[in-house]
């Protein structure tokens, strides 16, 4: 199966994390990383499983590259009940709006029927840790708990429960 890592970015840090996740998954699955700026909600509806990576910007807003996607999601309101996803967020705990961006996107996908798998991963820019390393650790945990089903393309509502 193909795993799609889709990212919303402002400074490019979320893109770097997406690249690191792709690298970690390569060999076990076909993986691609795509900017949400070039991604249509209709495409999401066709997928079984996506990994969503997003930063937060300004006053807890979505990063620039995720904004048009979010607007189209709201306008088109596609049925995402066939979709399972996992979320990794980047933020800076220095701001009280820490990681609002990834939460906004995940909430919207769930509202449209998608199922969120596992714990949301989080990187804190003020922690000094490398975001790619934190993300790959998170991915290992996710695959440990849900990997067989994700890889088998059977990540359905049951898998999430």
């Amino acid at each position: 199966m193909t795993i799609h890592v889709i990212y919303g970015t402002e400074t490019g840090n979320a893109e770097m994390v997406a690249d690191d996740l792709v690298e970690a998954l390569e060999g076990d699955a076909t993986v691609t990383a795509r900017d949400l700026a070039d991604f249509d909600p209709a495409e999401v509806a066709e997928r079984d499983f996506v990994i969503l990576v997003s930063s937060t910007y300004g006053e807890g807003e979505l990063p620039n590259s995720a904004q048009p996607f979010f607007a189209r999601l709201e306008a088109q309101a596609p049925d995402l009940s066939g979709l399972t996803f996992a979320t990794f967020g980047l933020g800076d705990s220095f701001y009280e709006t820490f990681n609002h961006g990834s939460r906004t996107l995940a909430d919207k996908l769930r509202e449209l029927g998608a199922i969120e798998l596992g714990e949301r991963g989080v990187h804190d820019a003020s922690s000094g840790e490398l975001p790619g390393e934190v993300a790959v650790e998170w991915l290992k945990g996710l695959l440990g708990a849900h990997g067989a089903r994700i890889m088998a393309g059977e990540a359905t509502a049951e898998a999430a429960s």
Binding site: T11, G12, N13, M16, D92, F94, D124, A125, S126, G128, L130, P131, G132
Partner: peptide, 14 residues
Amino acid sequence: DHPGTKAVTRQFER
């Protein structure tokens, strides 16, 4: 005193 803003250097080092 804004080390989080400097996180982009990880990308640049790469």
